[in-house]
Write a protein that binds this DNA or RNA. Structure first.
Lengths: 193, 193
DNA sequence: ATTAATAGAGAATATGATTCATTTTATTGC
DNA sequence: GCAATAAAATGAATCATATTCTCTATTAAT
């Protein structure tokens, strides 16, 4: 005996916010604008999402998981291990950070701004780390894998990912450059750098 | 024949803002609070600084340079090259990011928030990169230095620095852990990882 | 002492996220 | 079909806050 939330409305909010975040960034996008473009009152947004941050998370979390899926699938088709490793690192340090007008910077914006008051613990980075670690593992020979601290390297790789995402708009040429990828592959695989 | 800005007032603003940023973070600190604690009107702050971001920059830029100075001086006293490299990386990836309650996260907050509209090009990261690169260079043998792409690695190291600063409050135990430092030293110096 | 430029104050202004009171709508039991 | 009702949706507040505006007080040079 009640009215019910409509998935279509939720989708409209998400799609509109996504487009606006993409165009102007998370901070510059206002709830009012999202509402206007989605043809509803600003207050109605709050029926579907408790805060602007939550809209961003609803958009970016699945998207980053999808990027991991793509990366994983494509990497598995590359037989040469060094080439595979290079591909994975290029995805993480170059393609994804520069993708779509520095898209994921919006997620960082959202997290940094909200990190003050909110008690949100991002599970995203953990998820990324786990998956990247597994992918890198497939690129090492068993002997190398035994000697190499994959976890530690992965932690470093994910931190660098954050850095590249943040700096994506400043210095695109240096974001995950081929020199960095080459160097890192050599370091990981133990060939001389 | 005019009244003149007082350096003492400027200092009071900076010191007050610094304390508040330290306690509550850049975002949570308001101009009103800074003004109140510094015993002046909020509008008077704008006689000395054009924006809140500029206050943050006035505080953090010299401070991060000072950290570089300290790191450089101390590292030069370490004769063993691997130990020196480990020290430098630990400073960059652990000590500085975790320092003073994740102090430099305020700078990242300020930059991320302002990066939208402002046209400020952070020269800080460039400066850090240059200096860290030089320091790392002193840790390599001439042969290694010739074969190793120090610039590329330094770029990566600074990106990871950003990541560690951002994530400093989430997972302090993993910020620049000894495992990461050890691993990286081995990778750079060419010992097996 | 006078003057003129500027520091500094307090009151606006502007903007934007979030909340509140009210109305509308969709669902369910009759 | 029709009432009852709970929740969606609305538009008008509210609450912060950075920044600007207008006016007054100060102060350094003449």
């Amino acid at each position: 005996m009640v009215q019910v939330k409509k998935e279509a409305v939720r989708q409209r909010i998400i799609e509109t916010a996504d487009r606006l975040f993409h165009q102007k960034g998370f901070i510059a996008t206002t709830i009012g604008q999202i509402a206007k473009d989605a043809q509803m009152a600003g207050s109605a947004i709050y029926v579907y999402f408790p805060s602007k941050l939550d809209i961003a998370l609803a958009i970016f979390e699945p998207r980053i998981i999808a990027e991991m899926d793509v990366t994983e699938k494509a990497s598995m088709r590359i037989k040469d291990k060094r080439a595979r490793l290079a591909y994975i690192l290029k995805r993480l340090w170059h393609d994804i950070p520069l993708q779509n007008n520095n898209y994921f910077n919006n997620l960082i914006q959202a997290l940094v701004i909200s990190s003050n008051d909110e008690n949100y613990k991002p599970t995203i980075l953990l998820e990324i780390k786990t998956r990247i670690g597994a992918m890198i593992g497939t690129c090492l020979s068993p002997e190398r894998a035994a000697a190499f601290d994959i976890d530690a390297f992965t932690q470093l790789a994910v931190m660098a990912f954050d850095g590249f995402v943040i700096n994506g708009h400043l210095n695109p040429a240096e974001v995950g450059s081929d020199r960095i990828i080459d160097l890192t592959c050599s370091m990981i695989l133990g060939g001389d750098g």
